[in-house]
């Protein structure tokens, strides 16, 4: 599968396999197009070559109606949470349920409270999104992502910008929800230890192609210097500290 935006090629012939019921992590430095990858999976963007298949369906050959049917079985957690800001927490989670089902309000209420309970925010249901902390907003978004009982949930940078406590909460939630709801999860992240701790299989992406893949243990023991640099977070290595430039002395002397 390839994807280009304008003349810039973002992915060059990459091939990923996401296994049912497992947590698959996609990791890589910032700016490698990890979010783009999720959008490709969700059918919001179209690959320039190749295909994306979910349950044997080619996402980009589905009709609009079938694509929407498919999306009902996918949940996605956005980096910013993407909660609707004009309605409160309760209505945000009820939103997809109300949109897609004809359930009566009592049933919706029970469903929403169960989802909120799962992320531990049952008490926050009356709050508006603007009153939530970043971690809480992400948990609400998580509850919303599982509102329609999807088979697959995609997490876009779930740990970025979180304090250690909410990070721990999120890590636990992703793992436990994956087990209790039999989900297939895709986690896109560059937070190494957290992601390593919850994922079953990891793809490392850089420069538009897959650099390494394997279980967390395999990667830890990898001899590839690039993998080691990324996992250990060393400032210099195969990925240079300096952006490509002429030698310093030459620059300073203005030659």
């Amino acid at each position: 599968m390839s994807f280009s935006r304008g003349s810039r090629e973002i992915f060059k012939n990459i091939s990923l396999d996401i296994q049912r019921g497992k947590v698959t992590a996609i990791m890589g430095p910032s700016g490698t197009g990890k979010t783009t990858l999720l959008k490709l999976i969700g059918g919001q963007l179209k690959p320039s070559q190749g295909s994306i298949q979910i349950d044997g369906n080619n996402v980009h050959q589905l009709s609009r109606k079938d694509l929407y049917q498919l999306r009902k079985r996918m949940g996605m957690l956005f980096q910013s949470g993407a909660l609707l800001t004009d309605i409160n927490v309760f209505d945000n989670i009820a939103y997809p349920i109300r949109e897609h089902t004809e359930l009566d309000e009592n049933l919706i209420r029970s469903l929403v409270l169960m989802k909120l309970n799962a992320v531990g925010l049952r008490g926050a249901r009356e709050l508006m999104p603007s009153e939530l902390s970043g971690g809480m907003a992400r948990r609400v978004a998580m509850a919303r992502a599982i509102a329609l009982d999807p088979v697959m949930v995609m997490y876009d940078e779930p740990f970025t910008g979180q304090d250690p406590i909410s990070m721990g909460v999120l890590v636990n939630l992703i793992r436990s929800m994956n087990q209790s709801l039999h989900l297939s999860s895709v986690v896109v992240s560059h937070d190494v230890p957290e992601t390593m701790s919850i994922s079953d299989y990891i793809y490392l992406i850089s420069g538009g192609s897959i650099v390494a893949q394997g279980t967390p243990d395999e990667l830890k023991n990898s001899s590839d210097p690039w993998v080691q640099q990324f996992i250990a977070g060393q400032p210099d290595g195969p990925v240079p500290f300096h952006y490509t430039a002429s030698p310093l002395m030459q620059d300073l002397l203005g030659e």
């Binding site: 919001q44 049917q69 956005f78 910013s80 993407a82 997809p96």
Partner: peptide, 10 residues
């Protein structure tokens, strides 16, 4: 990302 979010909620 509210618009994208809606799209992903079908």
């Amino acid at each position: 990302e509210q618009l994208s979010g809606m799209e992903m909620m079908a």
